[in-house]
Design a binder for these strands. Structure first.
Length: 546
RNA sequence: GGCAGGGUAGCUCAGCGGCAGAGCAAGCGGCUCAUAAUCGCUAGGUCACAGGUUCGAAUCCUGUCCCUGCUACCA
């Protein structure tokens, strides 16, 4: 048990069938910023992300390359981990659905649902592609030659019936409606919640949770007669089939909390505070998932947040097959770890889709990071070095400083936006304050004051120290408040200002962030600034590529 | 088809009965601490289209045209 607030958040697990794109990592970047925001506040935080590795599709892709599925997904997982490392993503656990504890977890969830009477044998029917398995009715195409699957147009589809286990979702209809009513913030943004409510009210059907055969998946733990499918030698009976990939995938969130082997950990970490997911899988997370949990005697998560998407020019969804794929390697090489994170979270509202472009990214980087903030830190450090020999003066008292007054409203707004998951607005608030600081430099003109100091004018020295103290404090506060988004640059800024960095690489271990974010929190402590060093080198405008 | 959301400056968007706004991009000027930076000013709009309600409509109502999302087992 822990004695401080805990926060358990997850991303969706990424489907390990190809290399990651920036549009996929956007969700992880956002979740990482939220995780760091909680860690820096001193909350006991658990941030789970990972990969979804089973399914007929993945087995097929591996077979196309003549490789074993495990070998195939290992390679994809390495690509995801490398891309996340380059973006300073800091999961407390990177979970894979092929992990042994997850396999045990998914099987236990099936057993519990069975014991609760929520699982029964039925027949699943649909269009079956010999290469890809059952296909969604909306994905198949009618042609003169018959019904085909777009990925394998040469092979006619068969209408097949398969004996499967079904989950009694219909039994949870009323409870789900009540849950949505009693927890109006369960799904956000609100318009997404309304879509889900509409779906529930249409009437819920049971869904299949197993597939026949011992393919690439977690062995279904129960035989048709209800007996355990595990054989004396520990292997699983192939006749039991496998757990259908959705029933497998969602369960990673309880595995990550320690289910089922560590009840104390589950008591600490479940229910999750937040699942951050894409809008395309909201139904599974907000309707199927709570029902699955209730069936197993567990609580529903506290919040599901459906974020928007990065769209290419013309509003097209980004994907590798459309050729508008944005490679995370190019992205990080161009903008740096922190620049890439900032741009992604600033250019795309966290609650909506947005069209993005390489030119837009460059403009945003130059305007916000190189010019407004990077240059503010640079000119501030430079002036303190030049005019005060690098000694750090205190800021003026909050009530007597324009910036001190402005900061109190900024901080309140930042907190509110963070708590409502509006990460783009968090940054907009902070950068409005950066603009205030740049205006203060022009209004007070330290280079004029310093001449008055040299002329021995009374009060000039105090004025100079006051202005520079305010500017240094403004830089410290913005760096700290933006640290969840700029985790590697923030410590460098504090170092230039003569402050030690008190937090670990993942944001854990330092003083409570909200104390640090008080105007003048370190007044009276002597400090020495270092030589100025550009943080975000300005980029030349490039023509669109990537 | 049904339900929901949207169409406002070159770009991204805010405003949602009371003088059309912000940021970026563009042009001009100031300043020199700074990363060709920054500060100020300017320009830029049939608020998708047509009708209606109102003293007054980007905002409310009706219709039309576009765009997007949801409408169950690819994940």
């Amino acid at each position: 048990m822990i004695d401080r607030p805990r926060f358990y958040l997850t991303t969706a697990i990424a489907y390990a069938n190809s290399m990651p794109g920036v549009h996929t990592l956007y969700e992880v970047i956002g979740a990482d910023a939220v995780a760091r925001w909680h860690r820096m506040q001193g909350h006991e935080t658990r941030f789970l992300t990972g990969t979804d590795e089973h399914s007929v599709n993945i087995a097929m892709r591996a077979a196309e390359e003549g490789r074993a599925p495990r070998d195939f997904v290992d390679e994809k997982v390495a690509l995801f981990k490398a891309a996340e490392a380059s973006l300073a993503i800091s999961p407390d656990r990177f979970i894979r659905t092929t992990d042994p504890d997850h396999i045990a977890s998914a099987q236990e969830m099936v057993r519990r649902a069975y014991a609760n009477g929520d699982i029964y044998l039925g027949a699943y029917e649909g269009w079956y592609c010999p290469s890809e398995g059952f296909r969604n009715a909306t994905d198949v195409q009618e042609t003169p030659r018959g019904t085909i699957c777009p990925n394998h147009p040469e092979v006619p589809l068969q209408w097949l019936t398969e004996k499967n286990w079904f989950f009694r979702l219909s039994a949870y209809q009323e409870r789900l409606e009540r849950w949505f009513e009693d927890h109006p913030d369960f799904v956000e943004p609100t318009y997404r919640k309304n879509e889900m409510l509409g779906f529930i009210r249409q009437g819920l059907e049971d869904f299949s949770i197993s597939r026949a055969g011992s393919g690439w998946g977690i062995p279904f733990p129960i035989l048709e007669d209800g007996a355990s499918a595990q054989r004396p030698d520990g292997t699983w009976h192939p006749d039991a089939g496998t757990i259908y990939v959705w029933y497998d995938a969602l369960i990673n969130y309880v595995t990550g909390a320690g289910f089922p082997g560590d009840p104390e950990s589950v008591a600490t970490w479940w229910p999750a505070d937040l699942h951050i997911i894409g809008k395309d899988i909201l139904r599974f997370h907000s309707i199927f998932w709570p029902a699955m949990l209730w069936s197993a005697g567990l609580e529903a998560p506290r919040k599901v947040w459906a974020h928007g998407w990065l769209l290419a020019a013309g509003g097209e969804r980004m994907s590798k097959s459309r050729g508008n794929f944005l490679d995370p390697g190019d992205f990080v090489r161009a903008f740096g770890t922190d620049g890439a994170r900032y741009i992604a979270l600033r250019e795309v509202p966290f609650d909506r889709d947005a069209e993005v472009s390489w030119d837009g990214f460059v403009r945003r980087y130059n305007a916000d990071l190189a010019n407004d903030f990077g240059n503010l830190v640079n000119r501030t450090v430079s002036m303190a070095n030049r005019y005060l020999a690098g000694e750090r003066p205190d800021p003026r008292a909050e009530g007597t400083s324009v910036l001190g007054t402005s900061w109190s409203t900024t901080l309140a707004a930042v907190q509110g936006r963070f708590d409502r998951m509006l990460l783009h607005e968090v940054l907009a608030e902070l950068w409005a304050f950066v603009g205030d600081a740049n205006k203060v430099v022009e209004a007070e003109q330290p280079w004029v004051i310093v001449k008055a100091v040299k002329a021995g004018e009374e009060g000039a020295e105090a004025r100079l120290r006051g202005v520079l103290g305010d500017l240094i404090e403004a830089c410290r506060l913005v760096a700290l408040a933006a640290a969840p988004v700029l985790p590697t640059v923030a410590p460098r800024i504090l170092a230039q200002l003569g402050y030690a960095w008190a937090y670990g690489a993942d944001g854990n271990g330092g003083p409570a962030l909200l104390d640090e974010l008080r105007w003048g929190a370190h007044a009276g402590e002597p400090g020495q600034l270092t030589a100025p060093e550009p943080l975000f080198p300005r980029l030349e405008v490039e023509t669109a590529d990537a």
